[in-house]
Amino acid sequence: MNRSNAKDRLDRLEQLTAILKSEDALTTKTIAAELNVSERTLFRDIGVLRERGLPIEADKGRGGGIKLHRNWGAGRLSLENQEMIDLLISLAIAESMGPTLFMGNINTVRHKLMASFSPKQKDKIHQLRQRIHIGEQASPDVLQSFSMKKHETNATIETLHTAFLFNQRLSIVYHDFHDQETQREIEAHYLYLGFPVWYLLAWDHLRNDVRIFRYDRIKKADILPQEFTLRPLKDFNAILTKQNVSTL
Results as ranks from 00 to 15, higher is better:
residue 3 R to H: 10
residue 3 R to T: 12
residue 3 R to C: 06
residue 5 N to Q: 13
residue 8 D to S: 14
residue 8 D to V: 09
residue 9 R to N: 08
residue 15 Q to E: 14
residue 15 Q to M: 10
residue 18 A to M: 08
residue 20 L to G: 03
residue 21 K to P: 03
residue 22 S to H: 10
residue 24 D to E: 13
residue 24 D to N: 12
residue 25 A to G: 13
residue 25 A to P: 07
residue 30 T to F: 11
residue 30 T to G: 02
residue 30 T to I: 09
residue 31 I to W: 12
residue 36 N to D: 14
residue 41 T to V: 12
residue 43 F to Q: 08
residue 47 G to K: 04
residue 47 G to A: 05
residue 48 V to D: 12
residue 48 V to F: 09
residue 48 V to C: 07
residue 49 L to I: 03
residue 51 E to S: 09
residue 52 R to D: 07
residue 52 R to L: 08
residue 52 R to G: 07
residue 54 L to H: 02
residue 61 G to E: 11
residue 61 G to M: 11
residue 61 G to C: 08
residue 61 G to P: 07
residue 67 K to I: 01
residue 67 K to F: 13
residue 67 K to N: 11
residue 67 K to R: 15
residue 73 G to A: 14
residue 76 R to M: 10
residue 78 S to Y: 03
residue 80 E to G: 15
residue 82 Q to L: 09
residue 84 M to K: 15
residue 85 I to C: 10
residue 86 D to I: 07
residue 87 L to F: 05
residue 88 L to S: 05
residue 90 S to F: 01
residue 90 S to Y: 01
residue 91 L to F: 07
residue 91 L to S: 05
residue 92 A to Y: 05
residue 94 A to F: 10
residue 94 A to P: 03
residue 94 A to G: 12
residue 98 G to L: 11
residue 98 G to V: 11
residue 100 T to S: 14
residue 101 L to V: 12
residue 102 F to N: 15
residue 103 M to G: 15
residue 103 M to K: 15
residue 105 N to M: 14
residue 105 N to I: 07
residue 106 I to T: 07
residue 108 T to K: 15
residue 109 V to Q: 13
residue 109 V to Y: 14
residue 109 V to C: 13
residue 111 H to R: 13
residue 118 S to W: 02
residue 119 P to E: 06
residue 119 P to L: 06
residue 121 Q to C: 02
residue 121 Q to T: 06
residue 124 K to Q: 15
residue 125 I to R: 03
residue 126 H to T: 09
residue 131 R to M: 06
residue 131 R to Y: 03
residue 133 H to G: 01
residue 134 I to V: 15
residue 136 E to R: 04
residue 136 E to G: 01
residue 137 Q to G: 02
residue 137 Q to P: 02
residue 138 A to P: 01
residue 139 S to A: 00
residue 140 P to N: 04
residue 142 V to A: 00
residue 142 V to W: 00
residue 146 F to D: 00
residue 151 H to A: 10
residue 154 N to M: 13
residue 156 T to N: 15
residue 157 I to T: 14
residue 161 H to T: 10
residue 163 A to R: 08
residue 164 F to I: 09
residue 167 N to K: 13
residue 168 Q to L: 11
residue 169 R to G: 02
residue 171 S to C: 07
residue 173 V to S: 14
residue 176 D to K: 01
residue 181 E to T: 13
residue 181 E to Q: 11
residue 184 R to Q: 03
residue 185 E to C: 03
residue 185 E to I: 06
residue 186 I to R: 06
residue 186 I to N: 04
residue 187 E to K: 06
residue 188 A to D: 04
residue 191 L to Q: 03
residue 195 F to G: 07
residue 196 P to Q: 02
residue 199 Y to W: 01
residue 200 L to W: 08
residue 203 W to E: 07
residue 205 H to M: 04
residue 206 L to S: 11
residue 207 R to C: 04
residue 207 R to T: 05
residue 209 D to T: 09
residue 219 K to Y: 02
residue 228 F to E: 02
residue 232 P to C: 03
residue 233 L to R: 10
residue 233 L to P: 01
residue 234 K to V: 13
residue 236 F to L: 05
residue 237 N to M: 08
residue 238 A to R: 09
residue 239 I to N: 01
residue 245 V to E: 00
residue 248 L to H: 04
residue 248 L to N: 01
